[in-house]
Amino acid sequence: MGDLDLSFFDWALVQNFLLKGLVFSVELTIVAMIGGIFFGTLLALMRLSSHKWLQVPAALYVNTMRSVPLVMVILWFFLLIPFLTGKPLGAEWSAVITFTAFEAAYYSEIMRAGIQSVARGQVYAGFALGLDYSQTMRLIVLPQAFRNMLPVLLTQTIILFQDTSLVYAIGAYDLLRGFTNAGRNFNRPVESFLLATLVYFVICFSLSMLVKRLQKKIAIVR
């Protein structure tokens, strides 16, 4: 192994290999975040409802998802989706569905804690004003829960972004795949992995610094 040679790294490489992967990783993160928070909030509301028939399935879903490795969940969906729909779905679409379903379980735990952190008096106040359950939740409880949990939700999203690299298992073209392909193409795997490390670190570290600043801001207002 000779010295590191980064001369293969130029704009053409970024355009040909990395950009496509980065766009997919970011898209996957954003879609899974929005979908995950949406379904996660529904799951949290189900678990906190007084009806057993809502509580039990939601708890079962969340606990199952949380006790299986993400790679296995990715493999499961990749196997099951074509089986259920009857036609094969690309690795990319399969990843989008998998991550939304998987992250919903994790976001739901955060939203559940968030809803429980809202003072009970707020709910009573809503009812006293004549709002019904869905109005109280939508207009009073959820906005506060969401706000209290915003830093945790965003931290989970950074973890989600890191986890998107696991679509490697089904061969979807994400940021990491872009780097491995570039490394193979130029026969420079070592440099390519080093660059991948650097890029992921810069993205995740700056995002986590932003979350920390946001956390301070929110803490002062409250």
Partner: peptide, 25 residues
Amino acid sequence: VELFRNIPLLVQIFLWYFVIPAIIP
């Protein structure tokens, strides 16, 4: 802590498996 927390696990595994042995024969 920041170093090991902000790099995806899969990338870290590749780092240990491909990069570190190449740098330290």
